[in-house]
Computed example of a mutant assay.
Amino acid sequence: MDDITFEDFLKVELRVGRITSASLFKEARKPAYVLQVDFGEAIGTRKSSAQITALYTPEELVGKLVVAVVNFPRKQIGPLMSECLVTGFDNEQGEVALCVPDRPVPLGTRLL
């Protein structure tokens, strides 16, 4: 693992958002959802593709707070233009568990 400086870390905009919609990403090669994530007034709502279908249903995702990188360049994923990267961790089976705050915080709050 390479060390980074604190200044390198500060370049990554990890922000809290609320999932406002989740639907099956039918065109994805691997099972995934299309998420709409609201980061508050300053950042707005952004789309993302997330391979989290093994542990979550669309219904339980709506309303959930998540941590996402909002300053990556947009990325074309099939017909979807992904505008943020929702973060998570692989469990022992390789299924992705979302990285979430354990208490309510305002939308758009930056991880520091």
Rank of each mutant, 00 (worst) to 15 (best):
D2L: 12
D3V: 09
D3P: 12
D3Y: 14
I4E: 08
T5C: 11
E7Q: 14
E7I: 14
F9R: 03
L10F: 13
L14P: 00
L14D: 03
L14V: 15
L14M: 14
R15C: 06
G17A: 06
G17V: 03
R18G: 01
I19N: 01
T20C: 08
A22V: 08
S23I: 12
L24W: 14
K26F: 10
E27D: 15
E27Y: 05
A28W: 09
A28I: 09
A28H: 09
K30V: 10
A32S: 14
V34K: 08
L35A: 06
L35C: 05
L35Y: 04
Q36V: 09
Q36K: 14
Q36C: 09
D38I: 10
D38A: 09
F39A: 07
F39Q: 00
F39T: 02
G40I: 06
E41K: 15
I43A: 08
G44S: 12
T45K: 13
K47L: 15
S48Q: 02
A50I: 02
A50Y: 01
A50V: 02
Q51A: 12
Q51L: 00
I52K: 02
A54M: 05
L55Y: 05
L55G: 07
E59D: 15
V62L: 04
G63T: 07
V67R: 02
A68W: 00
V70S: 05
N71D: 07
P73T: 09
K75I: 05
K75S: 10
K75C: 04
Q76G: 00
G78K: 15
G78H: 10
P79H: 10
L80E: 04
L80Y: 04
C84W: 01
L85I: 14
G88W: 00
D90W: 13
E95F: 13
A97E: 12
C99M: 12
P101K: 06
P101E: 07
P101W: 07
D102P: 02
D102L: 11
D102K: 13
R103C: 08
R103K: 15
P104G: 03
P104C: 07
P104R: 04
V105N: 08
V105W: 06
P106F: 01
G108K: 02
T109E: 08
T109N: 08
L112P: 00
